[in-house]
């Protein structure tokens, strides 16, 4: 976005992560969450790493051990009522700012038990790359929305162990 080019190379930073090892990422991709995730105020800087769609990892820059799986909130469609926190002082979100909604996922060993916390998504202001986790007072939003859909049936077979990767992070 900034037209500046330093020797044609965007500045990068190196991030240590327990799960993915050492990562080099563009410095401007760092998301700052001044309050961290609720209950995790020690982690204020994060990067996002692609995973199998629709999942991404939110990897903490300050703490190699801290990482969350997230889903793009727009994946849930119009039924997901998550109004952006316009005017929020932490991310300074304005009406015409573009933003991302990151829904935090609780991954369970059995994928059918994996859930998404629709009640408390993270909003990221794409203009300043600042993020905040918002708790909605809406009682219809679940903290444990099941991501697995039984109706698709055949997908069950595809979770077999054919992809038994040797690398087992902690």
């Amino acid at each position: 976005m900034s037209g500046k080019e330093e020797k044609g190379q965007a500045p990068t930073i190196v991030v240590q992560s327990t799960r993915f090892g050492e990562l080099e990422v563009p410095a401007d991709s760092v998301i700052t969450m001044p309050s961290g995730l609720i209950g995790f105020s020690r982690g204020q800087k994060f990067i996002m790493l692609e995973h199998k769609p629709p999942f991404s990892w939110l990897q903490c820059v300050d703490d190699p051990n801290l990482a969350f799986v997230v889903v793009d909130g727009f994946e849930f469609g119009e039924d997901y009522k998550a109004p952006p926190p316009i005017g929020d002082p932490e991310i300074e979100l304005k009406d015409d700012d573009e933003y991302a909604i990151l829904v935090v996922v609780t991954v369970r060993p059995n994928p059918k038990d994996t859930t998404a916390n629709l009640k408390a998504p993270v909003f990221v202001n794409l203009r300043n790359k600042r993020g905040v986790q918002i708790i909605f007072d809406n009682p219809n939003l679940s903290t444990r929305f099941p991501l697995w859909n039984e109706d698709t049936g055949q997908a069950t077979k595809e979770t077999d162990q054919s992809k038994n990767e040797p690398d087992q992070g902690k």
Partner: peptide
């Protein structure tokens, strides 16, 4: 929410494979 965040931060080894199945399902 604190409790859910804590659990979300504990992605156990091996459960990542479950995400692949979930990705297909999704």
């Amino acid at each position: 929410i604190i409790e859910e965040n804590k659990q979300a931060a504990e992605v156990l080894a091996g459960s990542e494979e479950g995400l692949e199945g979930l990705s297909v399902n999704w």
